[in-house]
Amino acid sequence: MRQLYWILPFLFLLASAFIVKKATHIKPKESFFTNVPEPSDICNHPNNNNYFMVSDNGYLFEVDENGQIIRKADFEGFDCEGVHADENFVYVVEEMVRKIRVFDLNTLELVRTVHLPYQGGRNKGYEAITFNKAKNRMVILTEKDPIYLFELNEDLSIYNEILLDGIARDISAATYHADHLWLLSDEDRTVFKLDPNNYKVLAAWKFPIINPEGLVFNKKDQMVIVSDDMEKFFIFETPLP
């Protein structure tokens, strides 16, 4: 009976191995460089095939479908980590200073700034922003330790807080596509497909890309992942297996 106590830590180790979520492995079918420095997120332009991208060093860009800069907002932030665009505005989250910057879609002029205080780690703040159509609410997510998903009101104030700890080691991007919420994890190099109503993980895919920071589905329904360290676009075939 006394030996039983020593079995428990090993059972704990073994259990740890099975707690890790199993994911399907996928590979990109093509890749190309972007000239956006240190890209940290990407979203679709609502009216054409272009994208909006933000960079770690605080800039907002519009880029073409090949990732080449078309124009740049006359704005210098701290560290832009998430971007989302609708018919009228481009929304940018700044991680360190906990702000949402709202830009006019056509002129890329800053029209509004909202401060959303959050006392977590300096580099573990807001990392992703997108619009959850199922709930008709904007959502923003913190990166890690812990991972929070905040549902926002129309005025961008916080409406609801959901703890997503355990889903991944971190979250680096979010997007809404085909009636689901999609999250990207940099440290786990995994894309998660979530039920947008209860935020439960429905499926997960692992991929071999260094420092993935941006996630979007383009107008051809292809999944696009942007690597920060590599400054590169990676295109995946969809539907995903």
Binding site: L8, F12, V97, R98, P117, Q119, G120, G121, R122, G125
Partner: peptide, 26 residues
């Protein structure tokens, strides 16, 4: 064994930061 189990479940998300929009202290 008890110490190990306690360690395993002690939370570590204790990092804090303060900021005023221009100055951030962690």
């Amino acid at each position: 064994l008890v110490v190990l189990l306690i360690i395993a479940y002690v939370p570590t998300n204790a990092q804090l930061s303060l900021g005023n929009g221009q100055h951030v202290l962690e």
